[in-house]
């Protein structure tokens, strides 16, 4: 575990711990035992998080966090006759794509960071845009924009965006019987 990974893990555990204690106290304050079960669950989670915190503090930089062996690797090793080169390659590929971790999702290469920021911005703008001008316009405009940003050809971006906007219109009007131009701007 790298220093930054350890720091992020500790911070998240602490945040969850503070949340669970706050949650348990708040739930315990409701009358007529309305928050009894939630408060108990909150306390159990707090205890589990304290255990986790102690363990994480005990891990030295460079030492691995004790975790379940990736099932595919463990089982491939137990195959009768072991694994051939081709098989090992396939297993490694799956582990690489399946075993998401700090390295693949937080400590990003510049290219991956750029892509992550783009898709996060798209998601947030989609949320805000849907509230402002409704789903149809938001879908069309944002898909067109992100495809251009992804260096797709102009006609591909335009066709894809128009197709999705029409599909959204059909969904909103045809299936939900809702107003396609709803939102803060159109009322």
């Amino acid at each position: 575990m790298t220093k930054s990974e350890r720091r992020v893990e500790l911070l998240f555990t602490l945040a969850l711990l503070i949340f669970s204690i706050w949650y348990a106290i708040r739930m315990a304050m409701y009358s007529n035992y309305a928050g009894r079960v939630p408060a108990v669950v909150g306390l159990i989670m707090a205890v589990a998080l304290v255990v986790q915190l102690v363990r994480q503090l005990a891990i030295r930089p460079g030492q691995k966090e004790e975790h379940h062996e990736t099932a595919a690797v463990e089982l491939a090793e137990q195959l009768p006759g072991g694994v051939g080169e081709g098989v090992q390659e396939a297993v490694d590929e799956v582990v690489e794509t399946e075993d998401d971790n700090h390295q693949t999702l937080f400590a990003l290469s510049p290219d991956r960071r750029r892509k992550l920021l783009a898709i996060v911005a798209y998601t947030l703008l989609f949320w805000i845009g849907s509230m402002a001008v409704g789903f149809v316009i938001t879908t069309g405009v944002l898909i067109f924009a992100i495809l251009l940003y992804s260096r797709e050809r102009l006609w591909v971006a335009l066709a894809w965006a128009l197709g999705m906007a029409f599909a959204t219109y059909w969904f909103v009007v045809g299936l939900l019987s809702a107003n396609p131009w709803s939102g803060w701007i159109f009322g």
């Binding site: 798209y122 989609f126 949320w127 992100i146 495809l147 797709e152 969904f171």
Partner: peptide, 13 residues
Amino acid sequence: QLLAPALIAVSFL
């Protein structure tokens, strides 16, 4: 790049 934005729209809908 083509799939993800469209499917995010579907998820929100």
